[in-house]
Write a protein that binds this DNA or RNA. Structure first.
Lengths: 157, 157
DNA sequence: CGGCTTCATATGTAATAACATATCAAACTC
DNA sequence: GAGTTTGATATGTTATTACATATGAAGCCG
């Protein structure tokens, strides 16, 4: 049976079975997943080797359906596909700089674009002769919904 | 003899032997070094286990004498110590956002700050209630000195 | 004071976990 | 049957855990 022509649930181009499985797992997840976490989740579906995961991730990230978070060595589904169609920052046609805000308390990831940031980087790059091929921009911290104390201790004694 | 009170060649606070060795190796390197590359280089000096390297790196990065490049899983000496004292962006007292431009051809790394970038991120963060603890900002591309073709092929036969 | 205990920090070593890629063979599509 | 995708094993690379040892400073007690 054709491995193509499935996964149109996402409005995505034809993904292979493995790619669809990996994307589905990422979309269901609340937080970024490492390649091996994905592998664990998808063992039930027949995936057994890291390479199957990495190959799928490579394709998905190339298509912009998933993103790699370098500071976490983990992956998220792109926020601009499932759930909400009209987002502030489509990054589909135009190749905008994607930035990620990663909550160290709940693990949630917000994906955003800021024109000022992009412009500032462009300015620096032109004036220094640097030609960026890819930009990694990841904020690590606490999201709006998480309280300010990831500390240990009794916190009040 | 005291393991302290050395390494003042860098104007640094007292580093231990391992820390000084690791920092020295990073300063001599032209490009970022992975922890295991450092380990290989420093085997002659008696370092034998990854942990010795990682512990030194942890201290050095905490002191701001070295930086970790997340997108490379590698480390560089901070550019604002050795070589030139008065740089555009001291980041010593003030805790400025450090950004890195990494050349994928020659491996060189430039460290910089851009006020517009920092401000843009600050704007996004405040308006979204995100409290950043750390920011990762790494440009991957080609530096001013490298020609535009990191391609393979005979390049001229 | 001199010796002892205690504590903190730095180190050393081994083992293993976590992340990623190489290689090759089998299967499926065209 | 050429090209691609897949699957399986093996390997390489990066990072951490757990445990043991050294070293020096600070306090205690004879």
């Amino acid at each position: 049976m054709a491995a193509h022509a499935r996964a149109h649930a996402h409005g995505a181009p034809d993904l292979t079975k493995n790619q669809a499985l990996v994307l589905g797992a990422l979309e269901k997840a609340e937080a970024p997943l490492s390649a091996y976490a994905l592998l664990d989740q998808l063992r039930a579906e027949g995936l057994r080797a890291p390479l199957q995961i990495y190959r799928a991730l490579e394709k998905l990230t190339a298509l912009g359906l998933a993103h790699r978070l370098e500071s976490l060595n983990a992956f998220v589904a792109c926020a601009h596909r499932g759930g909400h169609g009209g987002h502030a920052c489509p990054h589909d046609g135009a190749h905008r700089l994607m930035a990620f805000a990663i909550c160290e308390s709940c693990g949630g990831v917000e994906e955003f674009c800021e024109a000022a940031v992009e412009q500032g980087l462009k300015t620096w790059a032109s004036s220094h002769g640097f030609r960026p091929a890819k930009t990694v921009l990841e904020l690590r911290g606490l999201c709006a919904r998480c309280p300010a104390r990831p500390e240990a201790e009794t916190t009040g004694a």
